[in-house]
């Protein structure tokens, strides 16, 4: 008993940095977010209790809040499935080719290393509405030029395009590693049973990959709802205009939250927004985990 106690005491010494981190940088701020969300708080003065007023304002009065929700949903619903699909397609193609795999892998992965500031500025240049590279390409193809980030219609697709350029490489590498792990014996067994290539892919390869797809989907979803840097830089104009892109079409959730909290010093309101996003993401995570029971296959997965 005393030995066990001593072992535990020593182990807690080892995990103490992490316990402190959990308490100071996770548990406390989480609880404080909930508390601040029920207050009016400008940092200069101590938080003043106002009950649910922040939430009432958010849901009933703040039209920009709903616009931000819409912009973020639009961005996520298009961008995340596209990222997953393109990554899976590229990984599948690479899995079947032996030549040049190193070159392709590098080409697809390099953009994800580029700092977000550089990425955003670079794409603002490429998507310049007058004579950017993208519009030059469209004109060569005989298509009409687009306004890209200067158009309320095309600004969100512009952000999605950037997210694809940055966000495909990483899941592609992960999917590729998963595909390479498909046990040869299962494929041979399927062939003996008369499965053609298409059937082997959909009935053997993809089901074995579903745990990996599931994990990446979840991580990408959570990150996508909190997209910030690209939209922030793309909408920070030198002219001091207050709209986030044309007609606020690039006002994503985090940009709105940042403006409320750090530009207008409404920390209470920003905390309320943080709490709403947090609860929405918890709910979404639970839904995705629940749905996974019907499409993620764990049994028969190869031990690693």
């Amino acid at each position: 008993m005393s030995r066990r106690l001593r072992d535990t005491a020593r182990a807690y010494l080892f995990v103490s940095p992490w316990l402190i981190s959990l308490a100071v940088f996770t548990a406390y701020p989480m609880l404080a977010s909930f508390y601040f969300s029920l207050t009016r708080y400008t940092v200069i003065q101590p938080p003043a209790w106002i009950g649910l007023e922040n939430f009432q304002v958010m849901f009933a009065k703040d039209e920009l809040f709903w616009l931000a929700v819409w912009n973020t949903l639009y961005y996520t619903v298009v961008s995340v499935p596209l990222q997953m699909l393109v990554a899976l397609l590229l990984a599948t193609l690479l899995n079947h080719s032996t030549r040049g795999i190193g070159f392709y892998r590098t080409a697809f992965y390099l953009p994800s290393l580029v700092p977000a500031v550089v990425t955003t500025l670079l794409w603002m240049l490429i998507l310049d509405p007058r004579a950017g590279l993208a519009n030059a390409a469209l004109e060569t193809l005989g298509l009409p030029k687009l306004g890209w980030m200067h158009s309320a219609t095309w600004s969100k697709p512009s952000l999605i395009l950037i997210s694809l350029w940055v966000g495909v490489g990483q899941p592609m590498l992960i999917f590729l590693a998963g595909l390479k792990d498909t046990p040869q014996s299962l494929l041979e067994a399927a062939t003996i049973d008369g499965a053609n290539r298409w059937q082997r892919y959909w009935r053997v390869v993809i089901p074995l990959l579903t745990p990996t797809i599931f994990f990446n989907l979840l991580i990408t979803l959570i990150a996508s709802f909190q997209v910030f840097t690209t939209a922030f830089i793309a909408t920070a104009t030198a002219t001091g205009a207050t709209a986030a892109g044309p007609l606020n079409s690039m006002l994503v959730y985090m940009v709105h939250l940042y403006r409320q909290g750090f530009r207008y010093a409404s920390m209470g309101y920003a905390s309320a927004m943080a709490v709403v996003l947090f609860l929405a993401l918890v709910l979404l995570t639970l839904l995705v985990v629940r749905s996974s029971r019907s499409w993620v296959h764990y049994e028969g997965a190869p031990p690693r």
Partner: peptide, 30 residues
């Protein structure tokens, strides 16, 4: 190391991987 509460603590650690950073942002700043 073997210690009381290890598996629970590890489960909590994994759960925080999914924790959205937004919910700790403002109080950490404050």
């Amino acid at each position: 190391m073997r210690f009381v509460g290890r598996d629970l603590l590890f489960a909590i650690t994994l759960a925080t991987l999914l924790l959205p950073g937004v919910v700790t942002l403002i109080p950490t700043y404050v």
